[in-house]
Amino acid sequence: MSVIESKNLSKNYFSAKSGKFAGIGLRLSGDPKSPSGDLGDGLCFEVDKGEIYGIIGPDGAGKTTLFRILTTLLLPDSGTATVDGFDVVKDFKKIRSRVGYMPGRFSLYQDLTVEENLKVFASIFNTTIEENYHLIKDIYQHIEPFKTRRAGALSGGMKQKLALSCALIHKPSVLFLDEPTTGVDPVSRKEFWEMLKKLKSEGITILVSTPYMDEASLCDRIALIQNGEFLTIDSPQNIVNKFNKILWSVHSNNMSKLLNDLRSHAGVGVCYAFGDTHHITVVDEKLTINTLSDFLQEKDHKDVVISKIEATVEDCFMELAIPKN
């Protein structure tokens, strides 16, 4: 697929799908004139209406750049993209009135109170708190008791709820959330994802980015991104199902030594730490759990526990990213 073909594709998406937004052939980084035989340079994807779409990848992968292009804050070097049927370059004004955007950093006025922040953002989007209160009610009522408190004095979770309320106050049809859960504690993160589900049920399309693989399963579809390229796009379940290697988790009393010992075994493909176990892919089909266990015990490992496991999105990310190195 070349950039030109993907432009053709963009027409197809455009007319055939009622997709809320289709971003095609975006070149994210680097010099536009640089010779790029690598076709992965362009990002092609489309998001359906009412979908929670996750852009998942590490810092520096290009998530924020992608979001800024789609919210018309940046011009793409090449390629085209549409949001809600409008071109991000030509119709940027129309897009600006219908999307909600929550940038990566906490971008509210720290010296204004909760209520004042909401009022300011309502008015710049030509609306009032009263007009769309029903939309944000579920989220805002968590922080309403503190509405006279200055935003700078809120906890991470509450700031995030306020930012979401501000992004929602003008009834956007597409919501762009750039790393909304970074720096937020696990309880607030969970609450946040529950809110997103609720918004989805109201028909709002949500594009959300995160560096945390464990949040992938909460999206309808995800695009794994690294170095400005998509590794894969699919539903989280399909991505996991596509993982075609045998995956074991191994645990022993000396985890640090275990890494080296496992890597020295010919039947082990890759081995990496994964929380309190190590994950290995098995390349030798004859290798059984018992033989590996014996091998490790010979190397002085005690309490060896080996079990066959299902891959997680994180395993898939590792697997997909590895060939590139």
Binding site: Y101, P103, G104, R105, S107, I124, F125, N126, H170
Partner: peptide, 13 residues
């Protein structure tokens, strides 16, 4: 600096 400009730009104001 605080990132609010991004939101202001992405608004019809």
């Amino acid at each position: 600096e605080q990132g609010t400009m991004e939101i202001l730009l992405v608004s019809p104001m």
